[in-house]
């Protein structure tokens, strides 16, 4: 596979990356490269230059600030998968990381790359959306934060403007009574989500106070299942309730479909995986 010719720049800092993007308007940021480089090899992407963020140390790492978890955009999936901290404070992220691609992909791919690329079948976008995360963006005009709900705009389209760099992802640390789970039906070849459902529930005794459920894989962007969320509020998340509520959660009309999984099948899988994710999220809410 042979990409068209392109320039290559390695940024040492976010500031330098922003400056390089300013100098090369047709450049693309290179994170883990596991989506961009295949696209370039197939000439689906033909950037004039790559600005490599791989050496920007400030973009990598996981830390907690009060009640918020801050994850550097260049943190590889593998670091999230094996983070003992996240296993306690935001277990949905390690769980989702563990089902991305294969170990080689997870060693290179980054959370920021996944979110900024906004592949409609990626795993992290639905999780960050369900968590109610925010994203920090740096540009020539300085920094800004965007709610996950506003960040994802369409297939491969986000709130990132030309010349901007996604630097950090903030998600709330798990509070008592909160349970979360990610359930995915993986494509047998790509292992991307045919349907993935991220569920974050806040339980009070056995009653659901709030459910945030987001899906990926079958919609052009990660999508909250608001109808389902509303139906669950104030209910126990027991087998009977879930069986009754996780029915026709989404309409097949407008869902993505292909020869591997039709829109009808994906709509059905959304029911199944919403139920499974909620079941596990509810179970985990009690394991404080």
């Amino acid at each position: 596979m042979y990409p068209s010719a392109f320039g290559y720049y390695r940024a040492a800092s976010v500031q330098e990356a922003v400056a390089l993007l300013g100098e090369h308007p047709d450049a693309k940021l290179l994170a883990g490269g596991h989506s961009l480089i295949p696209a370039m090899k197939l000439r689906l992407a033909t950037p004039s230059a790559l600005v490599d963020l791989g050496s920007v140390a400030e973009l990598r790492g996981i830390r907690q600030q009060g009640e918020t978890i801050v994850i550097g955009a260049m943190t590889p999936h593998r670091e999230i998968e094996y983070s003992t901290e996240l296993a306690k404070t935001c277990p949905i992220l390690p769980e989702a990381a563990a089902v991305i691609g294969d170990p080689l992909v997870r060693n290179r791919g980054t959370i920021g790359g996944s979110l900024a690329h906004a592949d409609p079948a990626a795993d992290f976008p639905a999780c960050v959306l369900a968590l109610g995360g925010t994203l920090t963006i740096q540009g020539t005009a300085g920094g800004r934060t965007v709610e996950a709900a506003d960040f994802f705009q369409d297939m491969f389209a986000t709130a990132l403007q030309p010349g901007e760099v996604l630097t950090e992802i903030q998600v709330p640390a798990r509070q008592p009574g909160v349970g979360m789970a990610y359930e995915k039906f993986a494509h047998p070849a790509s292992r991307y989500a045919i349907v993935g459902v991220a569920a974050v529930v806040r339980m009070n005794r056995s009653v659901c106070e709030e459910a945030r459920v987001a899906m990926t894989g079958a919609t052009s962007k990660p999508t909250r299942l608001t109808k389902l969320e509303a139906a669950l509020a104030g209910k126990p998340l027991d087998e009977a309730t879930l069986k009754a509520t996780c029915v026709n959660v989404v309409s097949p009309d407008g869902l993505l479909g292909d020869h591997t999984a039709s829109a009808t099948f994906r709509a059905h899988l959304t029911d199944v995986f919403a139920k499974r994710a909620l079941q596990r999220a509810a179970e985990r809410s009690t394991s404080r």
């Binding site: 294969d102 494509h187 047998p188 070849a189 790509s190 991307y192 292909d258 020869h259 591997t260």
Partner: peptide
């Protein structure tokens, strides 16, 4: 041909 890459064409892997 609608399965023209390993994104679409599913080869068996160890975990299958």
């Amino acid at each position: 041909f609608v399965a023209g890459s390993f994104l679409e064409y599913a080869m068996p892997r160890a975990d299958d």
